[in-house]
Design a protein around this nucleic acid. Structure first.
Lengths: 171, 171
DNA sequence: CGACACATGTAACACGTTACATGATTTG
DNA sequence: CAAATCATGTAACGTGTTACATGTGTCG
């Protein structure tokens, strides 16, 4: 549910054609999220099917346009605050939780390995973040990656402390 | 790529049958990540197809077992530190970035709306985290949700400051 | 001319989700 | 007995990813 809404949002600025949507999407996201053109067209097809978008068939190019329903759906998206319930499965969490099933020793191994890797990744990202201010979008994405990595790191620390103190009692 | 490895990891403790995998998966993840039984069977089919798992056809129940290749794949998974490149598309980020295309005013609206929602969500999660220590797994998941929400909040603050100071210059 | 950007698609595949169908066993 | 749990699947659908095919225009 990402590309779909993305295209809707871009079409809110007026009719666009497929390839244009690809490039502006990539531009808006600071070039961090490449978008295969093919997916743009298939997604547009689905949006048509769902009545959120119509096509203006011009000479040789096709122009896509929001319908009233599409504008409504977009409005709903802007209003909605995404709260995932159940939360999306995350690979790091999953790995640690499953490692616990194999015993706290294995879990601690996994935790420390990931922490050292995350520390270097974080340094790397901080450098990238501090350096070239490409665009506002790229900057914000870089910020997000740093903040996320910090959060993961903090969580790993929490895991370690809980694993070392709570050893023995697993209700 | 979550369920697949999850099942492999669980099968490392010995042969299991499908339904058992569902319940132990949900148990290992503190009941936070429900897993549809149907998906267990389809995933096991794919794992068979890929030669990572074999079936022991007993009287009326089927028991699944890791192959050598399966054990190897699992080992690789344990060793691997997940670094997504490009990073996965995140709805919050996407929304803010696309809102910027519509002008900083719209972006600021989105940012502040999400911040207030996140603040209350965070309080709620902190309560849940501080309360009943269900199991180690449930506790760790709750921790993760809190830490993630804090990170998102921090990022939104960053967005706001960048949006208010960087206004005007978008290279 | 040759490479590259522009422009539009199709096909195959992977994974996840939900709903549906079926039957055995356990337990209140 | 009735309901819940255990147990195994199938079918349909949605989305995302990659690769492939095709053609036009532009620019060095």
């Amino acid at each position: 549910m990402g590309v779909r809404e993305g295209l809707l949002a871009l079409l809110d600025d007026g009719p666009r054609y497929g390839y244009q949507l690809k490039t502006t999407f990539e531009g808006a996201t600071g070039g961090v999220w490449p978008l295969n053109v093919g997916q743009v067209y298939t997604t547009l097809e689905r949006l048509q099917r769902d009545g959120l978008v119509t096509v203006l068939d011009l000479d040789d190019q096709k122009s896509y346009e929001l319908t009233a329903a599409g504008r409504e759906a977009l409005g709903a998206w802007w209003q909605t605050v995404p709260v995932d319930d159940p939360p999306p499965r995350d690979e790091l969490m999953l790995k640690v939780l499953l490692a616990i099933e194999h015993g706290p020793d294995h879990a601690l191994t996994v935790v420390t390995r990931h922490r050292t890797a995350l520390v270097s990744l974080l340094q790397q990202r901080r450098r990238a973040d501090g350096a070239a201010p490409d665009s506002l979008a790229a900057r914000l994405v870089a910020d997000a990656l740093v903040v996320r990595a910090e959060a993961d790191l903090r969580w790993l620390d929490l895991c370690e402390s809980r694993l070392t103190t709570d050893v023995g009692r697993k209700p």
